[in-house]
Design a protein around this nucleic acid. Structure first.
Lengths: 343, 343
DNA sequence: CTGAAAGCGCTTACAG
DNA sequence: CTGAAAGCGCTTACAG
């Protein structure tokens, strides 16, 4: 059934050592021998066991990935980018899905990640504690982060604060003053989280424009239904309605947009909306957003990680990934009439 | 840095064999010794290498998963269910993402899956060819499928044809006759695919009600934007508009709903819509749908797989998973006025 | 250019 | 109840 290198060697009439050299390409082997060994391997469908090889080479050809969500757009994109890059280089990917507050968290750090199965580890959006970072470092394998700088782990991340500032400034530039921010739920608890940094950028921009008094933040689960619920709630009071919303992510933005329309508000006529991310639905909803490329980030982070494993220098502490404002039809200048009471 | 069982043995003053027995729980070991060994292991942070152990036990404690999409709801849910079940039992999950038409497909079957890394393999929605099923079987490890029966692989799947029939009958029961089906794009090519079976169920129901002449099928990418595009197209001609749509999945249904509203159609006033899946957005969009539990399916399939690996009998060729019609506000009885010309 | 030998980290008969 | 020995499948110095 499953064949070993001894079978290949026997069939090709060489020693296991030579078979190994011929198959791996390491060390000298006569061309004719090489051809014969490779043919033998093909004939019996031999594929080397990396688990066995790892025992002597120390290389597992396997990368561990830890992320809090699979089923949210950003994470799914990152994951697909990682998977593709890994596949291209012959690596496997072992995935751990650690929801915020997951009871398995400690077990993943102390048991699963410690099983000596990985040549490197990618952590994404899990906001590791200082102790956890230490545990990761103690593993002794290269690490890389995506989506938020983590102290002690080189991270691929966009400038969340800057993106939020830019998005908010866009609304300010259109004449809006009552600009509400719908933040991610952990912006409150973790100022260091993606949601926290985006809120900070919003506040920066408001303050710089002298609009502190107009600023207002609501919290939402970072999903479409989360944005819908928060939007429906926050926009229901007609006497105290913002003219624009800066949402912490596109899911929230789209959910808010749908809620606004159900309340009879026109977007952008009555309400301008800006998001962040460049979600696959953004175009369909004509959403103005600060677009990033999570799939590319996954790909680039893994490439850097594998290169580091192969001997390249470690990537820098923070690799700033690209993000750009894409203006679509969810934003418009505040109309003169609506603007009047403010001017 | 990373310690071996010899270190534990030395520290506890026993042989490697005894340390192994104490840690694994296999074989006799004096209680006092066991305690001493476990303490030693804890002190130096020892975790056994399953790669090394697999060489002698043959057990890798690792399961391979192959699926075409990560970033679509059904697959993401299945994946989270799988991951949780695996984590609970101490197994790792290695994920291969094989887009339809992926150039890597052959390499995954012939190289990655053949590396003797897995105690079992889960295949989801990739519609393996006969040759591929053979390759999988030749691996000699237990297999399980999710989301569509595959010959030769025990599969957890809902009755797609029945679900589609039920959904269509619901519309017929509400008095609709001009019921359009927006099918998944591969319904045409692969009658055996999920999309193909759902289209068959639609046609069954239409035929049984004597509505063959009214049946009409359009194709869409199985995503929200896919449903939006197909819906916008199919509903734009006011002279030839269905009064109801049965969508092959909830993403298509929701995309179609949004397109319909943009065209000024009221849902369900002018157009009733039914989907299939029980998508996380279904409630927010008040979508009538045939709900299934992909997360549960992933969990149950893995549990059956691990039990089989542990010695239980293989699951049956087809395990029918539950699905039920959930009626929400996207469907309504055809109004007398609209129905008149048909009666 | 090739082979015999050692050894990676583990577990498991086999003796005792 | 415990230890010495063998061996899982591979690769890599080391001789030749």
């Amino acid at each position: 059934m499953s064949s070993a290198i001894a079978d290949v060697a026997a069939r090709a009439g060489v020693s296991k050592a030579t078979a190994s050299r011929a198959l791996s390409g390491n060390g000298y082997v006569a061309e004719a021998t090489r051809v014969r060994v490779i043919a033998a391997a093909r004939e019996i469908g031999y594929v080397a066991s990396p688990n066995a090889a790892s025992l002597v080479t120390g290389q597992t050809k396997n990368i561990g990935v830890v992320m809090p969500f699979i089923n949210r757009w950003f994470f799914g994109e990152v994951l697909e980018g990682i998977e593709q890059a890994l596949l291209d280089r012959g690596y496997d990917m072992t995935l751990y899905n650690l929801h915020p507050g997951s009871a398995d968290r400690q077990r993943v750090f102390e048991f699963f990640l410690a099983r000596k199965r990985f040549d490197g580890i990618v952590v994404i959006g899990i906001e590791p504690t200082r102790v956890e970072v230490e545990q990761l470092v103690r593993l002794g394998v290269p690490l890389v982060g995506i989506g938020g700088p983590v102290n002690g782990i080189p991270s691929f991340t966009m400038d969340d604060t800057g993106a939020a500032r830019r998005a908010t400034e866009q609304l300010i530039g259109l004449g809006h003053r009552k600009i509400m921010h719908i933040a991610g739920e952990d912006a409150d608890v973790l100022s260091d989280s993606v949601a926290g940094r985006r809120r900070a950028g919003y506040l920066d921009a408001m303050r710089a424009a002298g609009l502190e008094a107009e600023s207002r933040t609501e919290l939402a689960i970072m999903s479409l239904p989360g944005g819908y619920d928060a939007g429906a709630q926050a926009l229901s009071d007609a006497t105290n309605r913002p003219t624009a919303v800066f949402a912490a992510c596109d899911e929230i933005a789209i959910g808010t947009m749908i809620a606004a329309r159900r309340l009879g508000l026109r977007v952008p006529g009555d309400l301008s909306i800006v998001g962040v991310d460049g979600h696959e639905y953004a175009e369909m909803f004509s959403l103005t957003t600060v677009e990033q490329q999570p799939r590319q980030q996954g790909h680039d982070a893994v490439t850097a990680l594998l290169n580091h494993i192969a001997g390249d220098p470690s990537p820098p502490a923070v690799v700033d990934v690209s993000a750009r404002l894409v203006v679509r039809a969810s934003t418009a200048a505040l109309t003169a009439v609506a603007a009047a009471p403010l001017s």
